[in-house]
Design a protein around this nucleic acid. Structure first.
Lengths: 124, 124
DNA sequence: CTCCGACCTGGAGTGCGCTCCAAGTCAAGC
DNA sequence: GCTTGACTTGGAGCGCACTCCAGGTCGGAG
């Protein structure tokens, strides 16, 4: 069980140290990160795994507030799995609708690109 | 050639009247929208078509500042097609990378969902 | 003993993209 | 002539998600 400084955790997760502190303050983590005797944070593998999940949720556009709700559910322990599932399913819906929308807009933009390619290098 | 009030244009484009004014102020349109004698804006079909393109760029995550650059290029007229193409191609790259990233994160979330589905309704 | 660098905190600041407000104008209906 | 409602403007305000700052602590090296 390695335990990492905030700088190392930042590197591992791709977040900044600032953001790691901010997530903790804002209740996105399952609990306060452990401290070394010096007061410095020490991130465990479990911390990193959870932060990766948070990162996935954020990267797919889940608002901080919803991540916080999800974290609260997980923190509360067994018994609310159905609620967590609902939350994730609802998020999945949103993400898929958004993926479809972006893809469709991208196809339209591609069409425009094709026009410009024709214009810039005509018949060649 | 119909010409629409800002409320009608808002409905057509899915934007709010506020946003339409904001886009115009911020240089995202090709030129100032025409006015009725009363001073009220009148949107032409061309305006709506351009606004739809802006909407596509925005919906795929292009920052306002880049939309403004693109609008400026189009406004400047013929001769900079290669530059417009570059801008659109660069944007396309970004969007595709982002689509891939979101999809990949979504697959991981789906995995988590499957686990919860198993837990909530164990073996059917 | 001093310095350095990594970390700590509460709180302020930033950038983005809207979103709204107050006060005013205009045309139409009563 | 008065009211109503859709619009106008410049500028302020907001929500989000960080991002940074000032001032302080701590442990180790020289």
């Amino acid at each position: 069980m390695t335990s990492l400084s905030i700088a190392e955790a930042a590197e591992q997760t791709g977040l900044t140290a600032h953001t790691l502190r901010y997530y903790e303050r804002d209740g996105l983590l399952l609990h306060s990160v452990e401290r070394a005797p010096s007061g410095h944070r020490r991130y465990t593998d479990d911390d990193l795994r959870w932060i990766q999940m948070v990162t996935r949720l954020r990267a797919t556009g889940m608002p901080i507030r919803d991540v916080r709700r999800y974290a609260a559910l997980v923190r509360d322990g067994d018994g609310n799995e159905a609620e967590r599932l609902d939350l994730l399913l609802a998020h999945r819906e949103v993400v898929e609708r958004q993926l479809a929308e972006v893809s469709s807009h991208l196809r339209a933009i591609d069409h425009k690109i094709a026009l410009y390619e024709h214009k810039v290098a005509p018949s060649a």
